[in-house]
Design a protein around this nucleic acid. Structure first.
Length: 307
DNA sequence: GCGACAG
DNA sequence: ATCTTGTCGC
């Protein structure tokens, strides 16, 4: 889905003299958590009708909207709407696109393979994306499995039309990541993605999305916990423990030699324990080497394009 | 003031 | 993720 286009479709339904809220638009998109992304989009792009969007308490988020609203016969006093509840538009016609994506995740999750269907890899690639507004700077670094020497490095710049919304990360990052993947001369044997695999409310984080669509063994590594509970909360350096949700193991927390734990979960065509073992093999520092290098490469590309 | 859910 | 200087610590 194109986020901006979907918001504009909804905004076109709010006639002059009426208003909606950031949360109202988000709910019409299919997920109330999109309220802040909607706010950011309107602040940046000001599509037609932007001035008719206010906060949930009826106050203006954009002061400049006051004069436009006044022209439409809407009374504004001290930054708040006079007859907020009377002019609040609530009858959006919508197919709730974010909810459709959530349902898609549930369907695709059933196709994920959590068994080790591969040989010991001889190389591994890490992927990461850096952003400047809507411009994505993606990088991928391919390493030799044994020596961890860099074999290949890919960089790609593209614009994205999907904001960061928790649990929908793949819809922001898949295209840049897939673009990098397509440019490898020799397809990597194992993929490492910055974010979760099965450690996700729909068991389908970005690493599952990438692994399934590209049909490659894939591991997800996150730097903070999205959901679930650790079997044991306190981890000594080098120690790992399962992360559970509804009683089932969805990944592992692993505390490297230094710093906070990282959260490892299978993306596709790998088991949770093999994913953990492989990540341990790849950890020179807190962040597995392929991801660490991809992160630095993506930032370097962004800074280069900035000037 | 609390809660605050990957990047 | 990004906005951002110096500062603290291994």
């Amino acid at each position: 889905m194109r986020f901006r286009q979907e918001v504009e479709k909804l905004l076109a339904q709010v006639e002059a003299g009426r208003v909606t809220t950031f949360g109202g638009l988000a709910e019409a998109l299919g997920d109330a958590r999109a309220a802040v992304p909607v706010f950011r989009l309107l602040r940046r792009n000001r599509p037609p009708g932007w001035h008719r969007v206010v906060r949930a308490d009826g106050t203006l988020a954009f002061g400049e909207a006051a004069s436009r609203l006044h022209e439409e016969g809407v009374e504004v006093r001290g930054g708040a709407l006079r007859d907020f509840h009377r002019i609040l538009f609530q009858d959006f016609r919508t197919d709730r696109p974010l909810d459709a994506l959530r349902r898609e995740q549930r369907v695709l999750a059933s196709q994920v393979v959590l068994k080790d269907r591969f040989q010991e890899p001889d190389n591994v690639a890490g992927f990461d994306v850096s952003y400047r507004g809507d411009v994505a700077y993606a990088a991928a670094v391919g390493l030799d499995w044994e020596t961890l020497e860099v074999r290949e490095e890919i960089g790609l710049t593209t614009s994205v039309d999907f904001p960061y919304i928790s649990t929908y990360l793949a819809y922001r990052e898949f295209d840049p990541v897939a673009g990098c993947y397509a440019r490898f001369e020799g397809p990597p044997a194992l993929l490492l993605v910055d974010g979760n695999g099965t450690l996700h409310p729909n068991r389908f984080g970005v690493a599952c999305h990438v692994g399934l669509k590209l049909d490659r063994p894939t591991i997800g590594v996150a730097k903070s916990l999205l959901m679930g509970r650790l079997d044991r909360e306190i981890l000594a350096p080098g120690e790992a423990t399962p992360v559970r949700a509804n009683g089932e193991v969805v990944g592992h927390a692993f505390r490297p030699g230094t710093g906070k734990p990282i959260y490892v979960s299978p993306g596709h065509r790998i088991s949770d324990l093999t994913a953990l073992r492989f990540v341990q093999h790849l950890c020179r520092t807190r962040i597995p080497e392929p991801l660490h290098l991809a992160d630095r490469a993506a930032r370097r590309i962004r800074r280069y394009h900035e000037g």
